[in-house]
Design a protein around this nucleic acid. Sequence first.
DNA 1: AGGAAGCTAGTAAGCGCTTTCATGCTTCGT
DNA 2: ACGAAGCATGAAAGCGCTTACTAGCTTCCT
Lengths: 359, 359
Amino acid sequence: MIDSEEVPVTEPSLATMADVAKRAGVSSATVSRVINGNYPVSAVTRQRVERAIAELGYVANAHARALAGATNRTVGIIINDVIDPFYAYIARGVEREATRHGRLCMVCCTHGSHEKELALIDLLHEQRADAVILVGGAYEDRAYAAQVARRARALHASGSTLVLCGRPSLGDDVPTRVVEYDNEGGAFAITDHLITQGHRKIVFLGGPPSLSTTVARLAGHRRALAFRGLPYDKGLIHLGQLNRRFGYDRIRALLADKLDFTALFCANDTVAAGAMQGLELAGVPVPEAVSVVGYDDVPIAQELRPQLTTVRIPLEELGRQAVRLGLDVGDDDDYLSPVQTMAKVGTSIVVRASVAPLS
Amino acid sequence: MIDSEEVPVTEPSLATMADVAKRAGVSSATVSRVINGNYPVSAVTRQRVERAIAELGYVANAHARALAGATNRTVGIIINDVIDPFYAYIARGVEREATRHGRLCMVCCTHGSHEKELALIDLLHEQRADAVILVGGAYEDRAYAAQVARRARALHASGSTLVLCGRPSLGDDVPTRVVEYDNEGGAFAITDHLITQGHRKIVFLGGPPSLSTTVARLAGHRRALAFRGLPYDKGLIHLGQLNRRFGYDRIRALLADKLDFTALFCANDTVAAGAMQGLELAGVPVPEAVSVVGYDDVPIAQELRPQLTTVRIPLEELGRQAVRLGLDVGDDDDYLSPVQTMAKVGTSIVVRASVAPLS
DNA sequence: AGGAAGCTAGTAAGCGCTTTCATGCTTCGT
DNA sequence: ACGAAGCATGAAAGCGCTTACTAGCTTCCT
């Protein structure tokens, strides 16, 4: 007869605090105190416990710990895509600042899906993240905004914080923190730069019409035009995707249509890269025939030839600020600073070689 | 008299499962069953519970859940830096595959520190991640390898898995999974490509001497040389950092020394970018005077002018494989597939414009 | 009709920690 | 020398879930 008795597989499960306690000949309370160092323990006992921990290769269970009251010490960040340098730099800032405050960082990507974004907020909420940072411009959509607001309240109710990074506030009645950068101001400044170089016919290229980022950048652009008494010509505004292909395709189309312009303000550097490629292929020299500027100052701006004049956003700092706001700590862990609910980081224009004065 | 009585701040703490149960007039067990859907519950009851959940805005506590036995459903990935496209692509693969299997992804960065790497493994272990993926080449260091091995065992003991991604195995007695890509083969192939184009004097540039990646790439390079009966000239091997500055500085130095060479094999694309910049500044045309190849095929390879001939690594696939190995699932969630402990993804060379036949 | 099956739902025992409260000592002050 | 004070430790009550195990009802078969 074949022995079908269950042979218990001796899964060498990890030691618990009780195991450590037994081995050290103390109670688990003492072990906990040694680990957390928040209560006096005699030197001898401490050493015994520490030895037991080492011998057993004990690793605390973060869940039990989190459940028993100590915070989970993690922050979550929700971005579009890790590959995109724009998000990657922000993520780096978040990761570093989180680490600086002893937090682990959970990075989640939406890949552009709204539903996934909402689902991820819930997931991070379930994980009881100390803060959830939502990065990137938002689309105008009442229903969607309401969904986000609901989650912001839920998060708030469990002692966490939703931080909006690079997107407008949901309103004063929604408990969120906001870190913004100056889309409008940057667009104003760089448009003005183009104008003072003599350009009058400036094409605005790219950016989905309902994206908050586009709206703000376009507003700055218009304000600069108005400031210098130039007309706002709708025929020069060509909104669209924020990718390379759109820049390439659309500029080729504009060139084919013989649109009259001397400068190009791309909604971001990626679009600028595509546009410059299109210009190059069409034999239009930059900046001699057309000046080009972008926005964001991601690495590709320096790879392009000529190097791209663009608006720099302190992305990493943006991420760091978001964490500070979310964790309610100041620059140097000054927990006593008055609670700040919003921050704005400045932008600056960086002049490189893609703009020439109009002859 | 000022009332100094403690006014209890009514922190609107989140609803628990018990709250939901009370509201729905059932026991918490039933609520759990509705949520998990792993046990029959009558339609009426289910609806009542679901309504209570919605009304209360209940969000499960992932820690309690993890503690009570269900797995935490997260995977951790440890990389050098999110900004580096090499790591970012792998991270993307990991994130996507993890999501596909219903896991949340925790991304941690070491920024090059060994201690931090070890600390992060421990942290992810504490979080009870289903798998911990360690990405990137390793430095030869016995003590360090022993430390990693110890953690691999600890992880294994608690039912998790350490996956080594792009680094050699720690030995058969250490319970890890390994996903590799063919550093040696790719280096062989691209060196041979250079040789068949007539090049005889090939400089090998960059890569820390004790990094496993460098060792393998250099080995492939040497094998190709030997295969074609060419001498291995130590004067042509210039190991060093894997960054742009090293490529730039060293190539300028070699040029100043009037080193005799016609081709350049850079240890990765970043070094190639620096070297090409140095070559450009020195007025040495690529590929006419010097052919250049890189390794990795990160986006910058396509930005460079001329575009860089390089070795492509399916980075995203590498990340996906790592997750599958770590989670012990097959391509299509086929949990019945025999346990695989190691995988190797192939490399291929992508020919662009930075190599010319030697005239 | 009577009991075996088959359902649904509740009870309660943990999971591995933190923390409050209680306890037995040692150490002082007077 | 005796009670007060101070320390170091232990006992035990949760934290919010999951999941045996148990129990009450229907069905259904013989």
